[in-house]
């Protein structure tokens, strides 16, 4: 079945939130979502309810930056370096793992739900058994310091659709593609434009790879972030996406951005691979659709918040975006 045309995108619902939502996980084929927020809390909510009132589940010790759902197990991670495992059926905590020495940036689940992956600023990508919580792999492919002797950060991680590949992307624009089974690196790609080091004017940096997504066939890897920034006090670089043939590390297409400024925090492909969608923002946000084969932007839509994450349904008919003080639902088709 062909994916719906991005031209049909229209806003459907919009909820205001007092907190910043950094991560969302949606239970397949339902309206149940789990949210990781700036008040250190993880919530569950029903998008179809007459009044959207997310219910608090439990609390981290810092910002919750990633939530992932593996079957009925919810795993969340945050700046406290911890992973909290939660049984969504029983409504109780399974375990807490001191997963990383530094701030966790993202938590994802494998498509088959057997694995959980967390990344953090200790520059480690850790693969966990979703059932037992045991560490399966500790993948180290990113340098702890930038070339300028400042701490680096590891922001982005994604699985391929078949679950065989993982990709991780860091602050300086370095991407590693991993063989999940072997726990070995397969290839690297470089997207240095995503990292702006201002060595003279302000002497620090901004940017980094903030999102990754494999094409449905697993051959291409989309990388999201922000182009070079003049004044790094602000997120004023253009929202940027590059697509790689990850096996050769060759950049196939670049979308340097012509409409919106800010970071591309999340990327996803249409199930049939016909388009790629990215979302993110600065003071405000955006949803942008690309035709990768034709190397052109299809639709670029303003969103009233800086988007930190979204969930797209398997049929690509609905996108739930979360971010700065808001949650927004768009429909397609």
């Amino acid at each position: 079945m062909p994916a719906p045309n991005p031209d049909t995108l229209k806003p459907a619902k919009d909820f205001s939130r007092s907190v910043i939502t950094f991560g969302i996980a949606r239970k397949a084929n339902t309206d149940n979502v789990f949210l990781g927020c700036s008040d250190f809390k993880v919530y569950s909510g029903d998008l179809s309810a007459a009044k959207f009132e997310p219910k608090e589940l439990y609390t981290h010790e810092s910002y919750v930056t990633g939530v992932a759902l593996a079957g009925t197990t919810l795993v969340s991670g945050g700046y406290d370096g911890k992973l909290i495992w939660w049984d969504t059926e029983a409504g109780k905590q399974i375990r807490t793992t001191d997963a990383h020495a530094k701030w966790i940036r993202k938590v994802i689940a494998s498509p088959d739900g057997r694995l959980i992956v967390s990344i953090a600023d200790d520059m480690a990508c850790k693969v966990w058994d979703a059932k037992t919580g045991k560490l399966v792999h500790d993948l180290r492919g990113h340098k702890e310091k930038t070339p300028n002797d400042f701490p680096s950060m590891l922001y982005a991680v994604t699985f391929s659709a078949d679950g065989n590949l993982l990709a991780t992307g860091d602050k300086v624009g370095h991407v590693v593609v991993w063989d999940v089974k072997e726990g070995k690196p397969l290839a690297t790609c470089e997207a240095p434009v995503m990292y702006t080091w201002d060595k003279q004017q302000r002497l620090h940096s901004i940017g980094g790879i903030r999102s990754l997504a494999f094409s449905p066939d697993g051959k291409q890897l989309a990388v999201g972030g922000m182009g070079k920034v003049g004044n790094i006090d602000h997120l004023e670089g253009k929202a940027r996406v590059e697509v790689f043939d990850w096996k050769t590390g060759k950049q196939l297409v670049e979308f340097p951005g012509d409409k919106f400024a800010g970071l591309v925090n999340k990327l996803a492909w249409a199930p049939d691979g016909s388009w790629l969608v990215g979302a993110g923002g600065a003071g405000e946000g955006f949803l942008v659709f690309f035709d990768v084969a034709a190397k052109k932007a299809l639709r670029q839509e303003k969103v009233m918040m800086h988007v930190h994450d979204f969930e797209m349904t398997a049929d690509a008919k609905e996108i739930v975006s979360v971010g700065h003080n808001r949650i927004t639902i768009h429909k397609l088709g």
């Binding site: 950060m153 302000r202 620090h204 901004i206 997120l235």
Partner: peptide, 14 residues
């Protein structure tokens, strides 16, 4: 230059 209007936490983390 510490003027972190955008990405305050990243800037301070650095």
């Amino acid at each position: 230059w510490w003027d972190s209007h955008g990405q305050n936490f990243e800037t301070h983390q650095e």
